[in-house]
Amino acid sequence: MTKTLVVTNDFPPRPGGIQAFVHNLAARRPEGSVVVYAPAWKGAAAFDAAQPFPVVRHPTSLMVPEPSVLRRAGEILAAEGCDSVLFGAAAPLGLLAPALRRRGAGRLVGVTHGHEAGWASLPVARGLLRRIGDGVDTLTYLGEYTRSRMARALSPRAAARMARLAPGVDETVFRAGAGGDEIRARHGLTGRPVVVCVSRLVPRKGQDALVHAWPRVLRAVPDAALLLVGGGPYRAELERLAADRGVAGSVVFTGSVPWEELPAHYDAGDVFAMPCRTRRGGLDVEGLGIVYLEASATGLPVVAGDSGGAPDAVLDGETGVVVRGRSVPDVAAALVDLLTDPGRARKMGARGREWVEREWRWGIQAERLGALLGR
């Protein structure tokens, strides 16, 4: 059995989507087949003690491809008898690949997310990404958007070796009936049509487009409510916008919620919407959008923006609709269509649940990773 050293800057208890992605991959490896090397973080000791695999923490909260990180990774590789390395985010730690190969790693896999696609468009970063691709055996990609963006920066040989590996969804956790009634009652939303958005509050995610669209939604569905789940630096601006648009009474901000309550917050909605859009000339872009799939698993129709790889997480017209994230009329029309046609909304939600069960379960992603590491 192959034993894998996971070298990653992104790992719990630090919060975030990449962190959850890497942890879920590690947790689904066979017993005794993985060891993780990750930065220090508040609460790490308690978190690490609960894991079914050893976690070695770097002294600082950031790891970069420099001699001390290489030395420690090499020591762990030898001490634990690892024969493969998985970089939790290929950029930038994947630059260590050639040196770790010289230290005994027989197979090296770099996982990519969204930021590597941004690297592919910047001259210096593009060269570094090409070096990473040549140094590992396989670079993974989330979907067709990120694959095509990165492939242009890679050597032909590295591009040919790319393989798809996306985050999975725990369909036993994200499901209809996961506690939405309690969340609705908590926020005074019982009996009202609810559009829910679960995401960090930052401009790219498009919560402002939802607020701008909300007066149009209320004209068609007067008792509708918008439930914005998550914290972030954009909250104060969004609250001002809701007040300016005269819709503050029907927009609920939950702030950050514990991970274990996320399934219930999805379940509190009738429609899920996150009309994300690309910013900063393509550097700030959605890599995939696992929230759309978590919503689909919960049985909700989704309204997705057209940023980057977000459309890869939606079967447009079947599990939801893809709209121009910068178009308030398009966002409003999609929301109104789904809120006023509950039969269509239920059909899309059911199709989304079926799609997640067939294509996006964590077990499927774990099998893909096992094949990449075992080649």
Rank of each mutant, 00 (worst) to 15 (best):
L165A: 09
Q19N: 15
V271Y: 02
E261F: 10
V69Q: 08
G325C: 06
V6E: 04
R28N: 15
I183D: 05
A178P: 00
A163F: 09
A153Q: 10
R200G: 00
V169D: 02
P65D: 09
V195I: 11
H212D: 12
L5R: 08
T60M: 10
R131P: 09
L70G: 04
V202W: 01
D312P: 03
A159W: 09
G320C: 02
R375H: 12
E171C: 07
V124K: 08
A38I: 06
D267H: 02
A332L: 12
P98D: 15
R344D: 03
P13G: 08
R326V: 14
G363F: 03
A243I: 05
L5I: 13
R216H: 05
T278H: 03
G232C: 14
P329Y: 03
A213F: 07
V211I: 13
P167H: 08
P342C: 10
G287T: 04
P52I: 05
C82F: 09
Q365T: 05
R351E: 15
L128W: 15
S61A: 11
R72V: 11
R107Q: 10
W355G: 02
A40E: 09
L154F: 15
G74Q: 14
G349P: 13
W119Y: 10
R161D: 11
R103M: 15
A334S: 08
R161K: 04
D181R: 12
R57L: 06
C197G: 07
V211Y: 00
P52H: 04
T4W: 04
R216T: 10
V291F: 01
A151D: 09
E237A: 08
L227C: 06
M274H: 05
T298K: 02
A120P: 03
A185W: 00
G17C: 14
G320D: 10
L189G: 00
G133D: 11
L96F: 13
I18Y: 05
V314H: 01
I290Q: 00
L165M: 14
A99R: 08
N24L: 05
